[in-house]
Measured scan of single mutants.
Amino acid sequence: MTEYKLVVVGAGGVGKSALTIQLIQNHFVDEYDPTIEDSYRKQVVIDGETCLLDILDTAGQEEYSAMRDQYMRTGEGFLCVFAINNTKSFEDIHHYREQIKRVKDSEDVPMVLVGNKCDLPSRTVDTKQAQDLARSYGIPFIETSAKTRQGVDDAFYTLVREIRKHKEKMSKDGKKKKKKSKTKCVIM
Rank of each mutant, 00 (worst) to 15 (best):
Y4Q: 14
L6R: 00
V8S: 02
G12P: 05
G15V: 00
K16F: 14
K16Y: 01
K16D: 00
S17R: 00
S17W: 00
A18D: 02
L19V: 11
T20L: 04
T20P: 01
T20D: 04
I24C: 05
N26D: 10
F28L: 01
V29P: 10
V29H: 06
E31C: 05
Y32D: 01
P34R: 02
D38H: 00
Q43N: 11
V45T: 13
V45E: 13
V45L: 10
I46K: 08
D47G: 10
L53F: 11
L53D: 01
D54Y: 02
I55M: 07
L56M: 14
L56G: 14
T58M: 06
Q61F: 04
Y64L: 08
Y64R: 10
A66L: 06
D69A: 03
D69G: 04
Y71S: 14
R73G: 12
R73L: 07
G75E: 04
G75H: 04
E76S: 05
V81P: 05
F82D: 03
F82P: 00
F90H: 15
I93G: 04
H95W: 06
E98V: 01
I100D: 08
K101V: 12
K104I: 13
D105C: 09
D105T: 04
E107W: 06
E107L: 08
D108K: 11
P110M: 02
M111W: 07
K117Y: 15
K117E: 14
L120P: 15
P121S: 10
S122G: 10
R123W: 04
V125W: 08
K128M: 06
D132N: 07
S136P: 14
G138N: 06
I139H: 05
P140H: 03
F141C: 11
F141D: 03
T144S: 11
S145D: 15
R149V: 06
V152P: 11
D153W: 04
D154M: 06
A155L: 12
A155I: 12
F156G: 01
Y157H: 12
T158L: 10
V160A: 04
R161V: 02
K167F: 04
E168K: 03
S171M: 05
K177Y: 04
K180E: 03
C185T: 15
V186L: 11
I187Q: 15
M188V: 05
M188G: 13
